[in-house]
Simulated scan of single mutants.
Amino acid sequence: MLIHPWDAAHDEAEWRAWLAGHDFGQLAVNGLPGEPPWVQPMHFRYDAEPGPYGRVIAHLARPNPLWRALETCPDVLLSVVDDYAFVPGPWAAPEDAPAAHGTPTSFYAAVQLRCTARVVDDPAEKAALLNRQVAHFQPEGGTEQVAPGAAPFGRLLPGLRVLDLAVTDVRAKFKYAHHKPPAVQDRIAEGLAVRDAPGDAAARAHQLRRRPAERG
């Protein structure tokens, strides 16, 4: 992922705050020799600790073909992308150029977590991590805890494997045209507000939020 200086996260707090509001991404795993990478969409729980970058908890079905590739190479990448919008060329045209000379572009926020995967099969640890993940998605409760050998979910444990991903590096990008002159940024922000398509409000919010820092 190319990250220009104007697209980079202002600091660690920025990407952490954004990631805290996201729990679905795509896990990329190195393919077996002669095969392309495996890419698995999945829900996950991100914990800010332990370590400098935290960890990710997820689970997948045991028949998933991903496991063979993970056993060969535990280095993986979790990609999370959201708050995206298409920006038409006329909105991004230079101030002194015809609108038709503007270059279309994409707005988006992206965080990529490089991780070392540990596959958890121990029933007790697996149940504890599953309960931790479910607690993130259902803080209000309402679902029985998973316990090995206990109804109603104990019988399902053998059919699942848990991923405990230690995050070793983070790359974050907030692509919202902050290298453009203020007048062009204003035109884009107005266009997003008027169009108001899915994703436009979130993209516009990022564009406006980051502008004071860009202007110094």
Rank of each mutant, 00 (worst) to 15 (best):
M1L: 14
L2H: 10
I3P: 05
W6L: 07
W6C: 05
D7I: 00
A8P: 10
A8G: 12
H10P: 04
H10Y: 01
D11K: 02
E12A: 08
A13H: 03
A17I: 03
A17N: 07
W18N: 01
L19K: 07
A20P: 08
H22Q: 09
A28D: 00
A28T: 12
N30A: 10
E35T: 11
E35F: 13
F44H: 05
R45P: 13
D47N: 13
A48L: 13
P52D: 12
P52V: 04
G54I: 09
G54W: 03
R55I: 00
I57W: 00
L60A: 11
A61W: 09
A61I: 02
L66N: 00
R68W: 02
R68A: 10
L70H: 02
S79T: 15
V80E: 05
V81H: 08
A85I: 14
F86S: 12
F86H: 13
V87P: 08
V87A: 06
P88I: 15
P90M: 09
P90W: 08
W91V: 10
A92F: 00
A92P: 01
A93Y: 06
P94V: 07
P94C: 14
D96T: 15
D96N: 15
D96C: 03
P98V: 11
P98E: 08
A100L: 14
A100T: 11
P104Y: 11
Y108L: 08
A109G: 14
V111K: 02
L113W: 09
A117I: 11
V119G: 02
V119R: 00
V120P: 06
A124I: 11
E125K: 14
E125Y: 09
K126M: 15
K126Q: 13
L130R: 06
A135N: 07
H136R: 14
H136S: 05
H136M: 12
E144D: 10
V146R: 04
A147P: 00
A150E: 15
F153G: 01
R155M: 10
R155P: 08
L156W: 14
L156S: 14
P158I: 06
G159E: 11
G159S: 11
V162H: 00
L163P: 04
L163E: 06
L165Q: 01
L165F: 07
L165M: 07
V170K: 01
R171N: 05
Y176Q: 01
A177K: 06
H179Q: 08
H179G: 08
P181Y: 03
P182H: 03
P182G: 06
A183L: 02
A183D: 13
A183F: 00
Q185V: 15
D186R: 14
R187V: 05
L192M: 14
A193I: 05
R195P: 03
R195V: 06
A197W: 11
A197R: 11
P198V: 09
P198A: 05
G199V: 07
G199T: 08
G199Y: 09
A202V: 03
H206W: 15
H206E: 10
R209W: 01
R210T: 12
R211N: 09
P212C: 10
